[in-house]
C-alpha cells in the first residue's frame, strides 16, 4: 500500500512537477551502429545540403544524413544502444574528439556537469558514442 500511495502522490504532482521534466537527450543513430547523443534542451536542427546542423547555446555540430538511420528522445543516456548499462550508471571515461582523455567520472551525469560544453567520446569495448554537452 505504501508503494501504491507513493506512486499515486508522484502522479498527482505530475501536472506541475513533470511539466518541467523533459527528455535530456536526442539520440541520432547511424547505419553503422554508432550513435550521437545531443543535449535536447533548446536544440535547433537545420537541414542543409545533406547535413543536419545542430545548434544550441554552445553546440554547433554537423551530422551527415547519408547514414542517419533514426532519431529519438531519451530521458537519460540509459537509452544509448550498445553501451553496457554500467557505462551509463557507473564510472565512465570521456575523451575529446582528438582522443585525449577528458576525465574519469563516477557517472555520465557527473561528466556532463563537470566538463565544458562540447563534443566528447565515450568508449566501451568496441563501441564508441559521441556525446554533446551543452550548458544553458
Amino acid at each position: 500500500m505504501k508503494k501504491f500511495l507513493t506512486v499515486l502522490a508522484v502522479t498527482l504532482l505530475l501536472p506541475s512537477g513533470m511539466a518541467a521534466a523533459a527528455y535530456q537527450w536526442l539520440i541520432f543513430s547511424f547505419s553503422d551502429g554508432s550513435q550521437l547523443s545531443v543535449a535536447a534542451e533548446n536544440l535547433e536542427i537545420h537541414y542543409n545540403q545533406e547535413n543536419l546542423i545542430l545548434t544550441s547555446n554552445q553546440v554547433n555540430e554537423t551530422v551527415p544524413t547519408a547514414t542517419l538511420a533514426s532519431m529519438r528522445f531519451s530521458d537519460t543516456c540509459s537509452g544509448i544502444d550498445g553501451l553496457p548499462a554500467e557505462s551509463l550508471s557507473g564510472p565512465v571515461t570521456l575523451y575529446t574528439l582528438g582522443g585525449v582523455e577528458a576525465g574519469k567520472f563516477r557517472n555520465l551525469d557527473e561528466a556532463r556537469t563537470s566538463l565544458p560544453a562540447g563534443t566528447y567520446v565515450i568508449k566501451s569495448g568496441a563501441k564508441s558514442v559521441k556525446v554533446i554537452f551543452s550548458h544553458s
Binding site: A22, Y23, A40, Y47, E50, L52, T65, A66, T67, L68, A69, S70, M71, R72, F73, S74, D75, G79
Partner: peptide
C-alpha cells in the same frame, strides 16, 4: 517528444509518428 524511433531514410525522409517529412 517521445522515446519512439523517428526513422530517417534516403538521407532526408524523416518519419515522425507515421507522418513523413522531406527534410
Amino acid at each position: 517528444a517521445t522515446s519512439d524511433e523517428m526513422p530517417v531514410s534516403e538521407g532526408r525522409i524523416l518519419t515522425i509518428g507515421g507522418k513523413t517529412f522531406d527534410m
